[in-house]
């Protein structure tokens, strides 16, 4: 279970060019947007592509992202229950 969270952190750091951060800097419960990591709407699009590319999850409604991309824990829970690959 923790492997998925570590894998997610690594993917987010690479995909979103968060060069300043390491896996250890991101807490599983940190907010990804706003006061947490400070991601923005373009990052949200990158995360949607990441979900589909790496886990076969296609978000048909972009508003779903608001519920899924809250934190690493929330993303991991969603991936565990919806992944097709």
């Amino acid at each position: 279970m923790s492997d998925l969270r570590t894998e997610l952190k690594q993917s987010i750091i690479v995909q979103l060019n968060l060069e300043e951060l390491t896996i250890e800097d991101i807490d599983n419960n940190d907010s990804l947007f706003g006061d947490g990591l400070g991601l923005d709407s373009i990052d949200a699009l990158e995360l949607i592509v990441l979900l589909e590319k790496d886990y076969g999850i296609k978000l048909t409604d972009p508003n779903q992202g608001k519920e899924i991309f809250i934190s690493i824990n929330k993303m991991a829970e969603y991936i565990e229950s919806h992944r097709t690959k």
């Binding site: 995909q15 373009i42 699009l45 990158e46 592509v49 589909e52 590319k53």
Partner: peptide, 10 residues
């Protein structure tokens, strides 16, 4: 590499 699919916006 992704055959024109799943292209990221940045």
């Amino acid at each position: 590499s992704q055959e024109e699919d799943l292209l990221t916006p940045t």
